[in-house]
């Protein structure tokens, strides 16, 4: 089964419940300088006197053409056959940082011992019928985890809904 973790900025408040759930799941030791694999933040900017803002939650995007996999000289990174997510075994990691140079989103990080760590999509939880910790924690459905099929269906429904709205027949209550 392939899985997709989907983020909806129109539901996010940057409350960081996802980030804390990730820290709890992965035993992140803040005092030792570690950081969680997911981060939520408020973005704000001024454009022509107008305030623009966004609420974002971000981690490894588990890219379809994940450049980190190709970049790793020791083959630590790979695509999980069971979940389709980008997972790793850092026992062979030499700390060369090629993966982090290849990643446009800054997902791979390096622990004090020089080994790479990143979000693995909680693929072992997925294999065992549980949702990724961040998704499980999001009370606002800003993060959801879908199978490949469900994701396709969602995209189609979105397209249909946009068409319906564009045709002006939306609004069951006057």
């Amino acid at each position: 089964m392939k899985y997709v973790i989907v983020f909806d900025p129109d539901r996010c408040s940057a409350c960081s419940a996802c980030a804390v759930a990730c820290m709890d799941q992965n035993d992140i030791d803040i005092q030792a300088g570690e950081r969680g694999y997911r981060r939520a933040f408020e973005w704000e900017s001024q454009v022509g006197g107008q305030a623009l803002c966004a609420y974002i939650s971000a981690s490894c995007l588990h890219c379809g053409d994940a450049p980190c996999i190709m970049a790793c000289p020791t083959g630590c990174l790979r695509r999980s056959l069971t979940t389709g997510l980008v997972i790793y075994d850092n026992s062979g990691c030499i700390g060369c940082r090629s993966c982090s140079l290849a990643c446009p989103f800054g997902a791979p990080r390096f622990r004090a011992d020089g080994k790479m760590v990143k979000c693995d999509g909680c693929h072992v939880r997925l294999e065992n019928g549980l949702k990724p910790a961040c998704v499980r924690a999001c009370a606002f459905d800003a993060l959801i985890c879908l199978t490949g099929g469900e994701y396709q269906k969602m995209l189609e429904e979105k397209a249909e809904s946009s068409l319906v709205k564009a045709l002006g027949v939306w609004g069951p209550r006057g």
Binding site: C15, A17, D24, A137
Partner: peptide
Amino acid sequence: GFLCTKGLCNRQ
């Protein structure tokens, strides 16, 4: 099934 940011801190 839902906890907030604070509730998710229970262990720590």
